[in-house]
Design a protein around this nucleic acid. Structure first.
Length: 275
DNA sequence: ACGAGCGCCTGTCGGC
DNA sequence: TGCCGACAGGCGCTCG
């Protein structure tokens, strides 16, 4: 499920209450139950189970695709990868298939981390920078300008799509929003980053921010059986619309594979210039 | 520096 | 109906 807008939606729901359940800020963790050991990236299970109880959730936020929970001593980081999701609910309720980690709170609620494909990861660390330190800029930050994007693009002789998916280049885009942003900016995913003009980089900058903001405004995208509640999937321009009409010009959307990822383009709006 | 291939996992869908 | 391959919102690793 989770790219930047979906994780942002979840962070807000955990903070203020929402589709995930009641808010969790202010809750104190009483116990942790790790149901799939490999969910835990760091530390080892014994230490994780020992260090968590008694810690209070001071705030919930997001950095890139990570959910960040500031505790009174440590920081708890969750990465949902492909199929992760969280619920906040009463401890008496039956656990769900694919629940991987349960945190029990002092007030009878619990936080359940559910992840069918087991790719999701959790960190408990005194210094979140050890996990988040390598990430690129946040595309929605006020300080992230079109000029900065242009300068960074100039530094890479690399195809646009894999570069935009590289979290050390720019943090938060995934397969959906990358395809949507490239179509909005009328850029072919195989264009070389250092071939973009300043105007093209500016268009890409605006497109990235537009699709991410629209995704957040619509509470993210809900595809398949994971993560209900988002509405962004109803406004996809090209993503998973192979054969359907481009909203801009009516040409059938094509699917190709770029960097082993399914990629959707309008061959007319996103033409690759002659070499 | 970059890209291809693969591993990690489970579930769904379309074709035969 | 049942089986089988393709595919899925991510990312880390090796190898050339």
């Amino acid at each position: 499920m989770p790219e930047l807008p979906e994780v942002e939606t979840i962070a807000r729901a955990l903070r203020e209450g929402g589709h995930t359940g009641p808010p969790i800020v202010g809750r104190t963790i009483r116990a942790a139950d790790l149901l799939w050991a490999r969910t835990l990236a760091d530390p080892l299970p014994d230490e994780f189970i020992r260090r968590l109880p008694g810690q209070r959730i001071e705030s919930v936020g997001r950095r890139a695709k990570y959910l960040c929970m500031a505790l009174n001593q440590d920081t708890l980081l969750l990465h949902l990868r492909m199929s992760g999701d969280v619920r906040v609910e009463a401890q008496e309720l039956a656990r769900q298939p694919h629940d991987r980690l349960i945190l029990e709170f002092e007030n009878g609620l619990r936080l359940a981390f559910n992840d069918a494909r087991k790719f999701g990861r959790v960190w408990l660390t005194a210094d979140p920078q050890t996990v988040l330190g390598g990430l690129g800029p946040e595309p929605l930050d006020e300080g992230f300008t079109a000029e900065e994007l242009y300068a960074r693009l100039q530094n890479h002789h690399r195809r646009l799509k894999p570069l935009l998916l590289d979290q050390t280049f720019l943090a938060g885009l995934g397969n959906i929003y990358t395809d949507e942003a490239l179509h909005t900016a009328r850029l072919h995913p195989l264009r070389m980053a250092d071939s973009l003009t300043l105007d093209e980089a500016g268009a890409l900058w605006g497109a990235i921010r537009a699709v991410l903001n629209e995704g957040i405004r619509r509470n993210g995208a809900s595809i398949d059986w994971v993560y209900r509640g988002g509405e962004f999937q109803n406004t996809f321009r090209v993503y998973q619309r192979t054969g359907q009409a481009c909203p801009q010009c009516g040409t059938p959307v094509e699917r190709l594979v770029v960097g082993q990822r399914g990629t959707h383009i309008c061959p007319r709006c996103q033409a690759l210039p002659e070499k």
